[in-house]
Structure formats: C-alpha cells, structure tokens
Design a protein around this nucleic acid. Structure first.
Lengths: 223, 223
DNA sequence: ACTACGCGGATTGTTGAGCAATCCGCATGC
DNA sequence: GCATGCGGATTGCTCAACAATCCGCGTAGT
C-alpha cells in the first residue's frame, strides 16, 4: 500500500490542484485581494481552464478557508475578521507551543527550522518581505512538524495561508515581518541547545506579541 | 458582512455539498467500505447527479481525508492505517485535553455534552451502536467546542469522521463503544462539578485507553 | 422626491456529451 | 515463466447548453 499523501500546497498532481495552487500564489502575491469577487468565467479564461475545473479548485480553496462560497453568488476571497485572527492565534499557541514543548530534541525537522531562518535572513537582506513572510511561515511549519503529525501539519498549512491573507490586508510588510527574523533565530538557538522549556515559553510570548501587533494594525486599518 | 460559515457535515447548501454528505452517511452506515473503489459513472448514477458534480464532492471529501484520490485511478475510500490511528489519537489528546483544561466552567457547550450523553444512553438501551458512536463523537465534539474555535472544531469534525471510518473496519461495535458511555457521563459530572483539572487528566487516560484498544483490535484484524 | 415593483442582463448551478490519456486485464509470443 | 502489446473501461478535462438566481436600473405610483 502506498503511503497516504495529503494533497498539499506545492505539489499538484491534477489540474484542479494546480489551479488551486495558482490561486493561492495570486493571493500571497497580492494579485488577488481579500474581499474580491472571483468570477468563474473570467478566472477560468485567465487561467486557461474550464469552468468545471475551476469549480473543483474552488471547492478545495473553500475547505482551506481561503475563499468563501455564497450560494448563487459565487466565490470571493475571504476577508479575515478580527475574530478569525484571534481564532488563528489561539490555535497557533495551542499547537505550536505543545509541539515545541513535547519535541524530541534532535528531531529531523530542526533542519527545516535552520533553513527557514537562513532564508528569512537572506530575504530580509534583499528587502523581499514577501519572501520573509514565506520563510517565517516555513519556520513555524517546521515547529509544528516537530509533533510528527501529518494532519496537524496540514491544518497548520491552511491556517498559515489564511493568516498571510490577513497580512496582505495590511500594508506595512517590513514592520510586520522584520522583527521576527531574529526572534526565530533565537528560538532555534534555544531549541538546539536543548532548552526546550525555555523555548516553549518564549514561543508563547512571541505569539501573544505577534497577535497583539496584528490586531492593533488591523484595528487601525478599519477606519 | 454575514458571519463566516464553515461548510460542515449536516448543512448542505449546494448540491455537491449534499452529495458529499450523502457519501459521508454511506460511509458511517457501512454502505461503503474502506478501500472500496468509487466509480464516478456508477456513483453518479446511483446518487442521480452528474459526474462533474460528483467530482466536486470528491474534492471536498478528499480534503477531509475520507477518500483518496489517485491520479488516473479515481477515488477510493481511505483505509486508515495504524499510523493514521496513532496520528489521530495524538491530535485528539492534544486538542481535547487542552480544550477541557482551559475551559470556562459554565461554557454553553456543556449542554451539547449533556445531550450527547443522554443520546448515547438511549441508543445503548436500544442497542443501536451506530447511534452510540455518533453520540460519542458528538460528546467529544462538544469538548472541543469548549475551546471556542471554529477552526479547531472543523478540524475535529474531519478527524472524527475518519476515525469512524476506522471503526467501521472493526466488527464489534458494542465492544468498541459500550464502555465509553459511562465514562463520558463521568467526565461530564466532573466538568459540571468544576473539577476541571481532574476531568482533563481523566480524559487523557480515557483517550490513551481508547487508542490502545482500537490499535489492539486493529492489529488482530490484519491477520 | 422617494419607495416599490419589475424587467433584463449577467452570473451561477448543474447537466450531458464528447474525446484524449491512462490504466488494467488478458491473450499472445518468446 | 515472463515480457509485449492490444482493447475495453475509466478517468481527466473541456465545451456548450439551460434553468435558477441575483443585481442594477428604469418606471410607475404616491
């Protein structure tokens, strides 16, 4: 029996999968904005697929929470609400902190953490804040991977994408991402030194702080 | 702005949603067995929908982990592996115990817990073990609901469905479900008495025990 | 002027047919 | 026994069509 494969961003076997991935990329790169209506006919032509295929992609994205499907009104990009942000950060604290606290010290995922930190540094040096955001999410994805759970990682991946969508609503990527590059590095340092408990506590603070900042910027934006 | 709605088993706005729900029900009721191939043409005719609509439903179920999509080979019902069982129980312990431990004592979800216990008792009295299984999952869903997180609840719902799929592979529903009716009731009692910490500990033991039993039956079944 | 109504265009929801690509079972041949 | 290759069946995807629904807008009525 072949190992189960959870269809995941990045791998695209079928056309609807790659269409979904293409739309995800458009979301990350700001080509599609939160709240925007996604016309089936228009988007199908733009991506050069049939409406039916696009519809399958919409089902996927809808289940991921990136897109909202209103009966007879089609799909539009989700606008994460304050409640959504709070929800997401609550889950992140629950999952990431547990994953880190219970982690096996020399877990293979620590390589991914290192890579992400390195990538974030390079991207920051290049001023590519989108890339910094990706690297940051990769870092936290690696933390979740410490828990060795496919399903948890899959869920985190969805949540991370939704959070990036929220970040896209804000307009100061440097302010939003820059501080966390060094914090991630420090977290990694603690982890590699085997100071797991300290790392978990720091991660918790980190997440509380991050949530607070996002909510603050978010609230100001509503004006 | 209308509140976000996470498309959930039970509510079906569009046709693909209700087709997905119909298939879920078939899975629960054993009309479709794990590993079974789902022919598009055949199932489409049986459910009286078009192949395209069925395909949309497949995408949903695939994201839920109930169905596996192999390129050019169509979809088949997932066969949960031992690793999947372990994964699921790991997540259950992580999520349910946290949700219970951090719960606000008089949280509205406790009504759902009461209802589920009552329903389980009635179903047990009637010898309807499928219903007992549903009530048991409803009880644990209510525990997760204590965390007040849409996303967590949605994820748990998916996981619970997958677990029921695994239960379907086993053939002794009474042995599988009967012991937990009273344990749930006891858990509820502790919760309502405000003995949250005790309840959380008991839940953890409960889940470890449950996992052990399922894995044991599972391993025996492989012969 | 303001609301209620209703019309018409545009979009979605769903279907059915059609066709290329791929897989699977099976017979053939070595 | 094993590789080869053929043919039917299935999947992957597209296209076109049509009913149902929504939305904007003009009209009528007060």
């Amino acid at each position: 029996m072949p190992p189960r494969h959870f269809p995941h961003p990045g791998v695209a076997s079928s056309l609807p999968d790659s269409v979904a991935e293409a739309i995800r990329q458009k979301l990350i790169h700001g080509e599609l904005c939160a709240g925007q209506r996604l016309s089936e006919a228009q988007l199908a032509e733009q991506l050069d697929v049939s409406r039916n295929t696009l519809r399958e992609a919409f089902r996927i994205l809808s289940k991921e929470g990136l897109v909202h499907h209103a009966p007879n009104r089609g799909v539009s990009v989700v606008i994460p609400s304050i409640a959504d942000i709070i929800d997401i950060y609550r889950i992140r604290r629950l999952i990431e902190c547990q994953a880190l606290a219970q982690s096996w010290p020399r877990h293979p995922a620590h390589k991914r953490m290192r890579q992400a930190v390195e990538q974030a540094r390079q991207a920051r040096a290049a001023g590519d804040w989108l890339q910094v955001g990706s690297a940051n999410m990769a870092f936290h994805g690696a933390i979740v991977a410490l828990a060795d759970s496919e399903r948890l990682s899959a869920m985190f991946s969805d949540i991370a994408a939704e959070l990036r969508l929220a970040f896209g609503l804000l307009n100061d990527p440097e302010y939003l991402h820059a501080p966390y590059v060094d914090q991630n590095a420090h977290l990694l340092q603690l982890f590699e030194d085997g100071r797991i408990a300290e790392a978990a506590v720091e991660l918790e603070n980190y997440l509380v702080q991050s949530e607070r900042m996002v909510l603050a910027v978010y609230a100001r934006r509503v004006e």
